[in-house]
Simulated assay, not measured.
Amino acid sequence: MFDRIRKYADRFRGTGGAEPPARREKRGHNLFEAAAAYVTARAEDDQDRIEEAAGWVSPEALSFGVSELACRAVVALARERGQSPRTVARDLLGLPAA
């Protein structure tokens, strides 16, 4: 599963998975690091860190990383609460129960 995500993410960076992992690491932050830093900075309302993290990867890659982080967070909370992911997502967004 993670190989598929990594290959998908490589398309955003233009590597196509052709470069060895050590070479990719030297390029800077990966999209998941950027997404984690971006979401954390947003949660803490730190505009400087938001802008810094947003500059680490392309906007498309950041969007994918934030989306992946959101999915994983909702699934983890749903398991923790013993609820469905749909119920948790709606609750987090302040939407009425469906």
Rank of each mutant, 00 (worst) to 15 (best):
G55E: 00
W56Q: 12
S58I: 10
V39P: 07
S63V: 00
E44Y: 04
R79A: 02
G65A: 09
A61D: 06
A36H: 05
A34G: 10
V39W: 02
E25S: 15
L31A: 09
E60G: 15
E52V: 04
G65P: 01
A70Q: 12
H29A: 13
L69S: 03
R42D: 04
I50A: 03
P59Q: 11
E44M: 01
S63T: 13
A35H: 01
V66G: 04
Q47A: 14
D48M: 04
V39E: 12
E44H: 09
A41I: 12
P21E: 14
G28A: 12
R24W: 07
E25Y: 04
L31D: 10
A78M: 03
E51S: 12
P21I: 04
A70L: 13
Q47D: 14
A41S: 10
V66E: 05
L77I: 10
L62W: 05
A41V: 11
E80Q: 13
A73C: 07
D48Q: 12
P20S: 14
A61V: 02
E60I: 08
E60F: 01
E68I: 11
S63A: 15
C71K: 13
D46M: 01
T40L: 02
R79I: 07
I50S: 08
E44S: 04
R24C: 06
C71L: 11
A61H: 03
Q47Y: 08
A54W: 05
V66S: 07
R79H: 10
F64W: 14
G65E: 08
L62T: 02
A34T: 10
D45K: 15
L77C: 08
R79M: 11
R42H: 01
A43K: 14
A36P: 00
V39H: 05
A70N: 12
V66K: 07
F32P: 00
A36D: 14
L69F: 14
V74M: 03
L69W: 13
G55L: 06
D48N: 08
V57S: 02
P59F: 07
N30C: 11
A34E: 00
E68S: 07
D45F: 12
A41D: 03
I50R: 06
A34L: 07
A41C: 12
V57N: 04
P20A: 15
P20C: 03
T40V: 01
H29I: 01
D48E: 15
D45H: 15
E60C: 07
R27C: 01
R42S: 00
A37Y: 09
V57Y: 05
V66C: 11
A76T: 13
R79G: 08
E68D: 10
R24N: 09
L77P: 06
R72P: 05
L31V: 02
A37T: 04
P20K: 14
C71D: 12
L69V: 04
A34K: 00
L62E: 08
G28K: 09
Y38L: 06
E25A: 15
G65H: 05
P21T: 01
W56S: 05
S67M: 13
T40I: 05
V66Q: 08
A34F: 08
D46L: 01
A78H: 09
I50P: 09
R49P: 00
Q47L: 14
V66F: 05
A36R: 11
R79E: 15
L69C: 10
Y38E: 08
G65F: 06
T40M: 00
E44L: 12
W56A: 02
